Computed example of a mutant assay.
Amino acid sequence: MAHTKEIREKRTVKDEDILKDFQVSFFAMSRLASLPWTFVQKDLERNKSTAFISEILKRTCLHPLCQNFPPSVKYRRLFLSELIRREAADCDPLDELYDALAEVVGAEETTECYKSYLLPNGEAVSLLENIALISEGTTGLVTWEAALYLAEWALDHKQVFSGRTVLELGSGVGLTGITICRSCSPNRFVFSDCHSRVLQKLGDNVHVNGLTEQGSPAVSIEELDWTTASEEKLKEIGADTVIAADVVYDPEVAGSLVKLLSKILRCSSAEVLICSTVRNPDTYGSFKKQLENAGISHQVMTGPVSHVFPYNRNSAIELIKLFR
């Protein structure tokens, strides 16, 4: 009897892990092929019941988070179609599954949707992002992999941000900064970007996630042009920690970034961390060479990070710390 109970408890833990995988992946709009569909199929064959599919539905399309911050219409439609496709022929149809599909079949597609990233404490960072990777002349309206990695690193190294003033360069839609504000207890956080549309979207996302200038931490959003930002402006911000994610993607932009980083390191003792997805080794190598020419040394921050968010972990992502 004890052995049977142990097996049942293990199965319950496994079920919960699978349900969490579905929920985390659904709200982040991960590729559908990456979800654990095989487990669902085996559960249906074993139990001859749609109870597990019903539970998946409660954690995804019927969850309050989906009502407030829904993934794209197309994604929800494809997700529900996959669940229906896996319903066993000898099981009673699940009415709420078909009702949920009916809601999105006729819904209008939009150019924006919400992605929500679940934090270890059970809260969520919900971001309005553009569906297209490049839109309105910028790549800053979506979340990129290095931002997710840097957010995970921050969750593992809260002491780098706790009680400090943090400046983020190229904040984009705000994933890394909002995660730090919600989980790492900075005293003040300054989001920054130079693209007007990105700043507008960033402001919306900061507000949606309950962050305000008067709150704790105090947050502000600054238009910061890397080519014209003065040392006086940087001193006024007074950052103790400076971060940036996925900002090294163009040789010309990298040059402007190095000049700004030189000013930051010259006028402050801030801890500076740059996280990059190395898509073009030549561009990234050129950035490091420009750092060297500017008298800036770097240290590669190695070691594993906790897996919190779903993204492609085969990507070449590097986090470096800068020194003068």
Rank of each mutant, 00 (worst) to 15 (best):
L44K: 07
D43V: 01
E112V: 08
S72A: 10
A51I: 00
T110P: 02
C66V: 01
A124S: 01
A154H: 10
E136P: 09
L141P: 02
I84Y: 00
F161W: 14
K74A: 12
Q159E: 15
K58H: 09
E45V: 05
C61S: 09
L44E: 11
L44S: 09
C61R: 12
E136N: 15
L62T: 04
R85E: 07
K115N: 13
S81V: 11
D95E: 09
R59G: 05
P120S: 07
A88E: 11
I84E: 05
V125S: 04
H63W: 00
L148Y: 01
Q159F: 12
L94K: 07
F39A: 11
S116L: 11
L78G: 03
V166G: 14
H157K: 13
A89Q: 01
L127P: 00
D92P: 10
D90Q: 03
T139P: 14
L118F: 03
K115S: 12
N47F: 13
G140N: 14
C91K: 00
P71G: 03
N68E: 08
F79Y: 09
L133D: 10
L128D: 04
S72W: 07
L57P: 00
S72R: 02
S116M: 11
L118C: 01
E152K: 14
L62H: 06
A124W: 00
S49F: 05
F161C: 12
A151F: 02
E109M: 05
R86L: 06
L119G: 03
L118K: 00
S72I: 05
V166C: 15
K158T: 15
Q67M: 08
V73K: 10
V142H: 05
I53S: 06
F69W: 10
A102G: 04
L141I: 04
L65G: 10
V40F: 03
T111A: 15
T38M: 15
C91N: 04
F79R: 04
Y117T: 07
P70A: 10
V105M: 07
P64L: 03
L101P: 01
